[in-house]
Amino acid sequence: MVLTVVPSGIAVFLLDIEGTTTPISFVKDVLFPYVKRNVKGYLHTHWHEKECQEDVELLRKQAKDDNQFDGAVLIPECHSGENADKEQAIKAVINYILWQMSQDRKTTALKQLQGHMWTEAYVRGEVKGEVYEDVSPAIKKWRKAGKKVYIYSSGSVEAQKLLFGYSVEGDLLELFDGHFDTKIGSKVEMESYRRIAQNIGCSTGNILFLTDVTKEARAAGQAGVQVTLVVRPGNTELTEEETSDSIITSFSELLLSDHK
């Protein structure tokens, strides 16, 4: 194992999730199939609840905006008490959700319903967040050394907390000092990392960002953030040029400069 010394002055570890702390396959092979398998039952069970109706209304509005695309499905209004209308509406919602997912859409309407379904799945124990086995021990060492640890993911803060709160290793939320999602800005934009540093209350140079995505690494580096690329099984292969950057295959390969 080749050790990589963490640059001196690093006070904060900023972690990506997919491909860094968690296999990329978790979302594609676990979370997304769960929605496809269970959306019909979920809608029938929760249809008359306020939260579900708010999700459906958001999807209905999004469907109208998508009406110009081939395959998009309009969702009819459902008049209370009329079962035929309900069944027709549910069928339309299901078809529209499956269409969005087939197009890899990331609309707020889709994410909102998916989030509510995943919450139920985590709480029931039907889904557990996958975390690489080297992640938890490394973070505990960093925190013991006085470092802070934050998450920055394109997934919502709510989704992040579910993944780590209901993980295969139990509740890991106490390992993190905070969470950021794209509300603070895109992960491929330099300004996002400056905002994160300002929010944390430190210099960008005191942050080490761990990610598997080179575009994110480049944006963070432009903001003055220290960066290490994480290479995990199933991640996109790096080009020869990209392999010149600081690279690890496990969090255990990071050695704190004051703990040689």
Results as ranks from 00 to 15, higher is better:
P7D: 13
S8F: 08
L14S: 10
G19S: 05
T20F: 11
I24R: 01
S25K: 11
F26P: 02
K28L: 12
V30D: 14
P33N: 10
L43M: 12
H46N: 13
H48I: 04
D66W: 04
G71W: 12
E77M: 14
H79S: 14
S80C: 14
A89S: 14
K91W: 12
L98H: 06
M101L: 15
R105Q: 14
K106W: 14
L110Q: 03
K111V: 01
Q114H: 09
G125P: 08
E126K: 10
V131Q: 02
D134A: 03
V135A: 03
S136M: 06
I139S: 05
W142F: 09
K148C: 07
Y150K: 02
S153E: 04
A159M: 03
L163D: 00
S167F: 12
G170K: 02
G170R: 01
D171W: 15
F176Y: 11
F180S: 04
T182M: 04
I184F: 07
K187N: 03
R195I: 00
C202T: 08
S203D: 13
I207C: 03
A217I: 01
G224C: 02
R232Y: 04
E237R: 10
L238F: 05
L238D: 14
E240A: 14
E240Y: 00
E241K: 11
D245A: 15
F251E: 01
L254R: 07
H259M: 14
